[in-house]
């Protein structure tokens, strides 16, 4: 500012990600709190996707995919912990049975699903992306 007055007006001062981070967080909160599975999954994906995007854009990482996969992994762990806390032991049958009766299991599974999608997209793109950066 001091050396080149007025120039800051001309710098690129834009980022598309903050808006979507701020949109992803409340959508995810509403989805998880009320147990609305599609809203929870979509909101969480928007949230972690935007975090990966903004971190890459800021230059902290070169490509966003590892971070996206990592955040997806964190969601899987969190969601699984929540769902399993309600079950005596892990078995697909027990989870499916609890989905109809236990709201916390529904929420946990929706977080896991969002995590798996993020993990999948991040992991796949990590290997699919061929273009040099």
């Amino acid at each position: 500012m001091d050396e080149q007055p007025g120039l800051s007006e001309q710098y690129r001062r834009v980022s598309a990600w903050p808006l979507f981070i701020a949109l992803g967080l409340p959508i995810a909160e509403i989805g998880v709190l009320f147990g609305l599975v599609p809203i929870a999954i979509g909101g969480l994906l928007l949230f972690v996707g935007s975090i990966a995007g903004i971190v890459q854009e800021s230059g902290y990482v070169e490509r966003p995919w590892n971070l996206l996969a990592g955040l997806g992994g964190a969601l899987v762990v969190l969601g699984a912990a929540l769902a399993l806390s309600q079950l005596p032991g892990f078995s697909p049958g027990a989870v499916l049975a609890a989905l109809g009766s236990n709201g916390l299991v529904v929420r946990g599974v929706s977080i896991v699903v969002a995590g798996v999608i993020a993990l999948g997209v991040g992991g796949a793109a990590r290997f699919v992306e061929q273009e040099p950066i």
Binding site: M1, S8, P18, L19, I21, A22, L23, L25, E57
Partner: peptide
């Protein structure tokens, strides 16, 4: 204070955009 911008400009934008949904 003679700063070019806030220390974390993007965090600044996130902080604002959380308010309308709020």
């Amino acid at each position: 204070i003679g700063a070019d911008d806030m220390a974390f400009p993007r965090v600044n934008a996130i902080a604002f955009w959380l308010l309308p949904p709020g």
